[in-house]
């Protein structure tokens, strides 16, 4: 299956019939290949949420073409075709635990797969497997999701999306409000999906530490346009706002001020120490 996403001259305007219509996206051209791990950054209101909602037909472009898995997403596409796209493009929202509703954990996680045509048995089988993978033990399967702790609820909600076995996964700030360990567990899980099952990942985040540790490609949006689309090294070199830089980059820049120029921009602690040791050895 071809998991490519292609956007050609895509614009999106909210409520175009109104005079005060706001253009949320302008002339976006973008190709995302299967299996990429992409982070999308930009201020609130820069168009990030609009962009990802175009990829699963929650919104349709005002002009231009959005092609996901070789199908053009339009207003007129059949329900069946739309469902087919949605079954392959999963999305985890900020605070995904807000979407839990079923009587039991198992029912909630198997809800999605059943909607996409899996039998009850198949769906439950799949749900059990995914729940185990996200660290929910079997004794919780028959419990109400609302009896769980906050962290457990979030895992169940994430399992509910992963159980649909998406080949493209969009995450909108999935770790806000979690502690560092909880955050790393979720991101490591996502990274594993990307590496082992070649799921395409689009991760919206404000957290530059996350960008530096996980991303291969960073797309920065500003006022509905793509401001830059590059690798993390180049991105951090261009990024003006000092406050949001990850620590390794800050230290790199401090060292440069002191006259010590490391060969490459380090993106994590190991790279930083390695670079310093390499430089010292010379």
């Amino acid at each position: 299956m071809d998991n490519k996403i292609v956007l050609k001259n895509v614009s999106y305007t909210y409520a175009p019939e109104n005079i005060d219509a706001r253009q949320a996206l302008q002339n976006i051209n973008l190709t995302i290949n299967a299996g990429e791990f992409i982070t999308i950054v930009g201020k609130t209101g820069s168009g990030k949420s609009t962009l990802v909602r175009l990829l699963n037909g929650l919104l349709t472009a005002t002009s231009g073409e959005v092609i996901v898995k070789q199908s053009l997403i339009t207003k007129k596409m059949s329900k069946k075709a739309l469902l087919k796209i949605r079954s392959k493009v999963g999305m985890i929202f900020q605070s995904p635990e807000n979407q839990l509703f079923a009587d039991t954990v198992l029912d909630d996680v198997s809800f999605g797969p059943q909607n996409f045509g899996k039998s009850k048995e198949e769906a439950e089988q799949l749900a059990k497997q995914i729940l185990t993978e996200v660290g929910i033990s079997a004794d919780l399967f028959k419990r109400s999701p609302f009896e769980l702790s906050g962290g457990q609820m979030r895992r169940v909600a994430i399992a509910g999306v992963l159980a649909m076995q998406p080949s493209i996964l969009i995450l909108d700030e999935p770790t806000v409000g979690l502690d560092e360990i909880g955050r790393n567990e979720i991101l490591t899980m996502i990274k594993k999906l990307n590496e082992q099952q070649h799921v395409t990942i689009l991760l919206i985040t404000h957290n530059m530490q996350v960008v530096s540790e996980f991303a291969e490609r960073v797309i920065m949006l500003d006022h509905g346009q793509i401001l830059s689309d590059t690798n993390p090294q180049t991105f951090f070199m261009q990024l003006a706002n000092e406050a949001s830089l990850p620590d390794s980059v800050k230290i790199y820049k401090e060292l440069a001020k002191n006259g010590i120029n490391l060969e490459e921009l380090p993106l994590n602690k190991k790279q930083l120490v390695d670079q310093v040791l390499k430089k010292l050895a010379k």
């Binding site: 230290i251 401090e254 001020k257 002191n258 190991k270 930083l272």
Partner: peptide
């Protein structure tokens, strides 16, 4: 970072350092 340097046989100061403080220490190496 200090911990990693220790593992490589260096002796970073015990007190807490921020990014700038750590850069100073590395510079002195």
């Amino acid at each position: 970072i200090k911990q990693l340097f220790k593992e490589h046989g260096y002796n970073p100061p015990v007190e807490y350092l921020d990014d700038r403080g750590l850069s100073e220490w590395i510079t002195k190496l």
